[in-house]
Computed example of a mutant assay.
Amino acid sequence: MRKRLRKIRRAGTRSSTRSERAISVGVELETYSISVPEYRISRELHFPRRGIAELGERFTKDASIGSEYNSRVFYTVREAFFLLKNGLRKYIHYRSSPEEHDYRTLFPIGGWTDRFAGSHIHMALGKKKFEYRRARLLARRLHSHIPFLIALCGNSPVWRDRITAINSNRLLRGTEKYCKVTRRELLYKHHYRELTYNEGGKRKPPTLEIRVLDSGIPEYVVAAICVVKAVALQWLERKPSLNHLTHEDYLSARDQAIRYGPKAKLLWNRHALTVPQYVDLFFRKYEDELDQLAIPDDVIDVFKYLKRGWNQSTVIRRAAQKSRWHHRPTWERRFAKRYAAAIRALLDGNSYTEFAKALGVRLPSIERTWMGRRESKW
């Protein structure tokens, strides 16, 4: 009888942990600045006016890049999408000196001049303490999906003011210093690892930090949150791990994602896949978990554009090339002017499609693009 009661209790506990709120998430987003009206891209600091931050939200300084936004804790994807946009919007609409004509707006990109900017996702088990032992188990699940996150969120095609064909110059050039490769079976407490365990402090609980994402717009940060939350929810259900990569395969897929982004060749259990195939397979394998997340349509569109071979790095590259073709000596200023208007409209509620259009880039149609097509054999 006692054994039977234990089974019933375990079953009840198991169903409760499947709630989306069982995994809490926070975001650190580093950003460049655009000075207006000069439209000069720089690392100059800028903050919203005092008293505008909400509880748990911080507008702070990063030692490397300059401005950094620390979000509140999110428990659902829709909450993350709304609050992240609302928080970043304060840089534009609640400036410290709103009457001045000269001001700075945010420019969330992985790299431009000579420094890198990233988006870091912090994961925890809701309001429970996240022990190192459990964080290590979750990190092992997430590790094989890191190349997919890089292909999805790469956003640094420009480096030292030169337009390149690279998806993420930040990781290509900064991995050894800022985002060191981690083996699947290990979880370090070192700050500059791609996956790291933060022990927390008085104000912050222990978290598992994912550092591979380039800085980017909220749609892509939340898309990455969807991926990691889906994997984490399946881990909480004690379901078997779905993707196991050897370290050699992982390094190969990671390098492909860094260089080629949506055009990369990724791996799923030693099977080579294109990025569109990986998206379909992920949405099929994690269908139950993704259904729980109630993902906003704007974020679903990000995955659809990825299937069509586009991510934010592609958009930035096309927009920069168009500005350079128009007038080479002043292309950066022209690009910055377009971007300042585009990011303002995006954070005010416009779609990602309108954001790209404001940059002078026409995205492909996704009307007949579906997620989770059964074209793969696994």
Rank of each mutant, 00 (worst) to 15 (best):
S24A: 03
K61W: 06
I316W: 00
K263I: 14
L137I: 15
K129L: 10
L83V: 14
K3E: 12
I163V: 13
E100V: 14
L29W: 00
K357G: 03
F59V: 09
R324C: 05
V212N: 02
V36Y: 02
K129E: 08
L281G: 01
E219R: 08
K202P: 08
V315N: 06
Q312A: 11
A80E: 06
P206A: 01
N155T: 13
N169E: 00
A320Q: 04
D348E: 09
K177E: 14
R193V: 14
T113N: 01
Y94T: 10
V275Q: 03
K337F: 01
S241D: 09
V36R: 09
S144E: 11
T274V: 12
D297W: 05
E194M: 11
W112Y: 03
S64I: 15
F148R: 13
K307G: 02
T17C: 09
F335Q: 06
H327G: 10
K337V: 10
N169C: 00
L359Q: 06
G126N: 08
G126R: 10
P206S: 01
D161S: 09
L29N: 03
K128V: 11
H46I: 15
F59T: 08
R10Y: 02
R328V: 15
R318H: 05
L186W: 09
D62C: 07
Y220E: 11
T182Q: 11
E20S: 08
P147E: 03
V228R: 04
A135M: 10
F283P: 06
K90I: 09
E248G: 09
E20Y: 01
E367T: 15
Y278C: 10
Y339Q: 07
T60V: 15
V158Q: 00
I65S: 02
V158F: 00
R203F: 03
E176W: 08
N70R: 10
G126V: 14
K307F: 00
H244C: 07
V181L: 10
E20C: 07
D298Q: 08
R184P: 09
E28L: 10
E219T: 10
G309H: 05
W331P: 08
G66L: 11
S33H: 04
W268G: 05
R49C: 07
R270K: 11
L137S: 08
I217F: 00
R89D: 06
T353I: 15
F335W: 05
Y286S: 08
V299N: 05
R308T: 14
A320D: 01
S119C: 11
H46T: 15
K180R: 14
L363F: 00
D114C: 05
E237G: 09
G110Y: 00
R14V: 13
V231T: 09
G360L: 07
R333M: 06
E100C: 12
T330V: 13
N269C: 04
